[in-house]
Amino acid sequence: MQAVASLRYGVIFKKAFSQPDVFTAFVRDILGIELIIDHVETEKSFPSAIGNIANHFDLFAEDKVNRIIVDIQHRRYADHYHRFLHYHCVQKVLRTIRRDTLSPEDHARMKDEYSEEELRRTEWEKAEQRGLLKGLERGLEQGKQAERLAVARNLLDVLDDTTIAQKTGLRNAQVAQLRQEHG
């Protein structure tokens, strides 16, 4: 069994799928389009924006005969392995992404991508935790407010508005509104 680098890394994905025969086979299998290309550009961008958009393509190929342009963007998903298993097992792809054939630059970019992914995951988890805590605090505050209002309603028949506001922590206007609703 060969040790290969994971397609989850953009540098490896581009290296594997930038070969014209692999690219055309992938496009044929996914889109059902036959391409006639002799090269695939990686990290393609145009010198000026097209419309209001400055495009950047991970993989870009132009079939000049059929007037077709195809670009493929690398995106990491949890099921990346299953979606590309077929291509991961093709011998040419395996030879291309064997760990022992990767350059020091490939390894460095893989480490950078891994670090960015870990940072995003950590930041996401922190944000999720902050959101949960904020939601919990908001829920507790709403519960306290509902309790204050319930106590104030019970005191309307026995105390004046100012005293109820002082004892419950409600504003005088809130107590006055409760009194109007209570009628």
Rank of each mutant, 00 (worst) to 15 (best):
V4R: 05
S6D: 07
G10R: 15
K14I: 01
A16Y: 01
A16P: 00
P20K: 09
P20N: 10
F23S: 01
T24W: 05
A25N: 13
F26C: 06
F26E: 01
V27M: 07
L31V: 08
I33K: 09
E34H: 11
D38M: 12
E43L: 06
E43Y: 00
P47E: 15
A49E: 10
N52I: 06
I53M: 09
H56G: 07
E62L: 15
D63Q: 04
N66W: 10
D71G: 11
H74R: 03
H74F: 10
R75W: 07
R76N: 10
D79M: 13
D79G: 05
Q91R: 07
K92T: 06
K92Y: 01
T96D: 04
R98F: 00
E105S: 08
E105D: 12
E105C: 07
E113Y: 03
E113M: 01
Y114V: 02
S115V: 06
E123I: 15
W124Y: 12
R130N: 09
G131D: 05
G135E: 09
R138A: 07
G139V: 02
K144H: 04
K144P: 00
V151K: 06
V151T: 11
R153S: 11
N154S: 15
L156Y: 02
V158G: 09
L159N: 09
L159A: 15
T162G: 13
A165T: 06
N172S: 11
Q174F: 01
A176P: 00
Q177T: 03
R179V: 12
R179D: 11
